[in-house]
């Protein structure tokens, strides 16, 4: 339990040098037989949402495959656009018994000044899938392929919040194609989809699982996908790269982080676990096939680079929009 006394000492304002050394010894001793107690997985968003499903599925698969000797206990800590939950994890500095998944708000809320902690306060462990975005237009529109868009100078797209992957991609596509795609911020993915199907915005950048159902029903037409290679779930959708826009490459990595300064042995330990998860049949069945993501394992170092790159992209975009200085 994090409410225990040791925790209280760790975060007291007066921490003597002796206590610090004692804590350091305790941590390294713990690492030898890590993990020896249950691990908390903090979900900074509500039950039933994308982050919640992802976190619980990962925890479920690890448990099912009996990969670790202890339990993973998922806990929803909502509020502050993710800031509350991520702060809970980040303040357990060096404690390898707190896990969290990465989301868009993981980057954007701190950049917007809404959170005391940023991606720098976490240790990346590994990523186990990537979720590309699919650029779509309603089937009723005249645009059959990506380059057709060049015929029209201006479009609108819907995004969830001002700073999101959809907004980022709209900007990248605008620059690459020499057109203008303005982002209209909505309050949820459902509203974005309704605006798109109702013809209130003209193009969309959607998650694979959202796009799949509408494409199957013939309501939306895919133009391109943002991954480096074609997605196994959508073999017919060309990548931006194939179409000659190699600079439009942006996917969301589904990965796990721990608080900053966890011992390197712990990171190696989790890399091993997550690699097994990423290649497992259970993960494929319970997540990849359901959400149509691209199976992919990225180790801690690679994941860290992606986190930095993603953060830099958001930061640049916000500066361009004049949201931050």
């Amino acid at each position: 339990m994090t409410y225990g006394l040791s925790n209280f000492v760790n975060h007291g304002r007066v921490v003597g040098l002796g206590l610090l050394t004692a804590a350091a010894i305790a941590v390294s001793a713990a690492a030898a037989e890590y993990p020896d107690k249950d691990i908390k997985m903090i979900i900074p968003f509500g039950a039933g949402g994308g982050s919640d499903t992802l976190a619980r599925t990962i925890a479920g698969v690890i448990e099912e495959m009996k990969l670790i000797p202890v339990k993973i206990l998922p806990e929803n800590r909502t509020g502050g656009s993710g800031a509350v939950g991520y702060s809970v994890v980040a303040k357990e500095k060096g404690d390898p018994y707190h896990l969290a998944t990465v989301s868009v708000s993981f980057f954007t809320t701190p950049l917007l000044g809404g959170s005391p902690v940023s991606y720098k306060d976490f240790t990346p462990l590994a990523a186990i899938a990537q979720s590309p975005y699919i650029m779509v237009v309603p089937t009723s529109s005249e645009y059959q392929k990506l380059d057709d868009l060049k015929k029209t100078p201006r479009f609108t797209t819907g995004t969830t919040g001002v700073v999101s992957d959809a907004a980022l991609l709209a900007k990248m596509t605008s620059n690459a194609l020499g057109i203008q795609i303005d982002s209209v911020p909505f309050d949820g993915e459902g509203e974005v989809m309704a605006a798109l199907l109702g013809g209130h915005v003209n193009v969309g950048f959607l998650n694979p699982s959202e796009a799949m159902a509408q494409m199957k029903a013939g309501k939306l037409r895919p133009l391109a996908i943002t991954s480096a290679e074609r997605s196994p779930a959508f073999p017919d959708i060309p990548t931006f790269k194939e179409l000659g826009y190699g600079e439009i490459l942006h996917t969301q990595l589904r990965g796990l982080v721990m608080p900053a300064d966890v011992p390197p042995e712990v990171v190696t330990y989790w890399e091993g676990i997550l690699q097994k998860v990423a290649t497992s049949e259970q993960w494929k069945k319970q997540y990849i096939d359901r959400f149509h993501d691209i199976p992919d394992y990225v180790d801690a170092e690679g994941f860290k680079q992606v986190l930095e790159r993603t953060n830099a992209r958001y930061e640049t975009m916000m500066k361009e929009l004049g949201i931050i200085k």
Partner: peptide, 9 residues
């Protein structure tokens, strides 16, 4: 619901 616990647990 994780209700807050006190110092006594």
């Amino acid at each position: 619901v994780p209700t807050p616990r006190g110092l006594l647990g």
